[in-house]
Simulated scan of single mutants.
Amino acid sequence: MKLFEKIPNPREIRRKLGLNQQEFWSKIGVTQSGGSRYESGRNMPKPVRELLRLVHIEQVDLSKVKREDFEIIEYLKDTHPDLYKSLRKAVKAQAEMQTDPVAQA
Score class of each variant (00 low, 15 high):
residue 58 E to M: 04
residue 58 E to C: 06
residue 80 H to V: 03
residue 78 D to Y: 03
residue 1 M to K: 12
residue 26 S to C: 08
residue 50 E to Y: 08
residue 5 E to W: 12
residue 66 K to F: 12
residue 19 L to E: 08
residue 56 H to Q: 10
residue 54 L to K: 04
residue 29 G to F: 01
residue 69 D to C: 14
residue 78 D to F: 03
residue 66 K to S: 13
residue 10 P to G: 02
residue 42 R to I: 11
residue 71 E to Q: 09
residue 35 G to F: 02
residue 56 H to T: 11
residue 21 Q to T: 05
residue 12 E to L: 07
residue 71 E to A: 07
residue 77 K to S: 04
residue 15 R to V: 13
residue 82 D to F: 00
residue 32 Q to Y: 02
residue 6 K to Q: 15
residue 62 L to N: 04
residue 26 S to V: 07
residue 24 F to T: 01
residue 47 P to N: 04
residue 40 S to I: 04
residue 45 P to C: 06
residue 11 R to Q: 11
residue 72 I to P: 01
residue 26 S to G: 08
residue 50 E to W: 09
residue 20 N to H: 07
residue 82 D to I: 07
residue 61 D to N: 15
residue 7 I to F: 00
residue 23 E to F: 02
residue 4 F to G: 00
residue 11 R to Y: 06
residue 68 E to F: 10
residue 67 R to C: 07
residue 20 N to Q: 00
residue 59 Q to R: 15
residue 19 L to I: 03
residue 32 Q to C: 08
residue 76 L to F: 09
residue 19 L to M: 09
residue 39 E to R: 05
residue 18 G to S: 06
residue 46 K to Q: 08
residue 81 P to T: 03
residue 77 K to T: 09
residue 60 V to A: 13
residue 11 R to T: 11
residue 9 N to S: 05
residue 3 L to F: 13
residue 6 K to D: 14
residue 17 L to F: 00
residue 54 L to V: 08
residue 63 S to L: 09
residue 61 D to R: 13
residue 49 R to K: 14
residue 69 D to H: 15
residue 75 Y to S: 14
residue 61 D to G: 07
residue 10 P to M: 05
residue 68 E to L: 12
residue 44 M to F: 06
residue 63 S to G: 12
residue 44 M to W: 01
